[in-house]
Design a protein around this nucleic acid. Sequence first.
DNA 1: GTGCGCAGCCTAATGACATTAGGCGCAGTG
DNA 2: CACTGCGCCTAATGTCATTAGGCTGCGCAC
Lengths: 201, 201
Amino acid sequence: MTLEDPKLDWTARRRQATRREILDAAWETARTDGWEGLTLRRVAERVGMRAPSLYSHYASKAAIVDAMFGAAWQELDDEMAQLESELPDDPRAALLLVARSAFGFFTSEPVRHTLMNLIAVPGFVPSEESYAPSVRNLDRLRRLLTRCGITEAAGVDLWTALIGGLTSQQIANDPGGDRWARLVPRAVAMYADQFGLPRSV
Amino acid sequence: MTLEDPKLDWTARRRQATRREILDAAWETARTDGWEGLTLRRVAERVGMRAPSLYSHYASKAAIVDAMFGAAWQELDDEMAQLESELPDDPRAALLLVARSAFGFFTSEPVRHTLMNLIAVPGFVPSEESYAPSVRNLDRLRRLLTRCGITEAAGVDLWTALIGGLTSQQIANDPGGDRWARLVPRAVAMYADQFGLPRSV
DNA sequence: GTGCGCAGCCTAATGACATTAGGCGCAGTG
DNA sequence: CACTGCGCCTAATGTCATTAGGCTGCGCAC
């Protein structure tokens, strides 16, 4: 079994590498030209191929975007997992940390943000598989908020609305600035008050 | 002068009517097929024309979308003007009314919402002219919030983030439902608390 | 009333796009 | 050394927005 690996793995590995290369090229293109500028031609050119050749590796353009969607949420989930393991004890401090992480993650890469929030790409609908990390992330958030003392169901919904609203406004109306970033601590305090978290110190 | 009107007006009026007809057809199409399904062919068909003929009335597809953008914001501005004239005295009640109006306006027409918030249409950037009603609206909101006792500059930004976040979540994750609609009163109360508004009765 | 001009529509053509079909070369295996 | 299949290619299709150029009928001056 392990004997076969090196051989079969060789082609499989190369295949995987090419897929990754294509994905990277797609991100690069999207960052440069926006989602409406993401064409197979441009992606292929970056990889050193012709557009139709991409179909040897992805079933369609939608499949590429789908993979990007999944990867982006996976990335956030990884970051949140890291965060979860080093959460401070004080609920308000923890909450602020979570908020700042998410806000920073989203605003640092507007193109990624618009994809993750299904906001930008033409008629894109994520596949079951790519959707999974996003669901996982929401579960983790639920867990995180519970640990911070937010037990009501409404807590998660209000949180996503609040943080999502702040990031969207920041990206749409002050890209690269900090007009809404500055409001994050205040928003978190407001939220914490609403759910009756004890004031720190 | 008024003598000339009926004559020159006749062609001008017909022209204006056709433009309106095209705009309506475009809305219809966008509602039915989404923004990615908004093609000049489909719009033209609805009006009983061929696609290139639309260019007699709009300079480009972008110009049509631009007009839609402006009209949408104008619509909201009209609604908010109406609201402004009949605002209750109690600040919290007024605030809730404003929130509910905006939330209702946006969520009632998801397609319109994605356009207004620059969220959906390929590489669309609004023209100066179409942008104006949106600016007007923000001014009005500032005025409204001031009248409700929100004087800090941050008040408006936090408000747009909060209401925008709620509407976006509602449309994206529970279209047609009320999962976030139910949270509006609570969100407004939370906001009012943060800005020290007196509790009603 | 006769012809002129133009407004408003048309068809045809162009170039970008995603996608499909079919071919070619080169790796590895018998 | 022939064989097979993988990974790339070119060519072709159909949809899109957009441009060019032509036809037609109505309003106006003579």
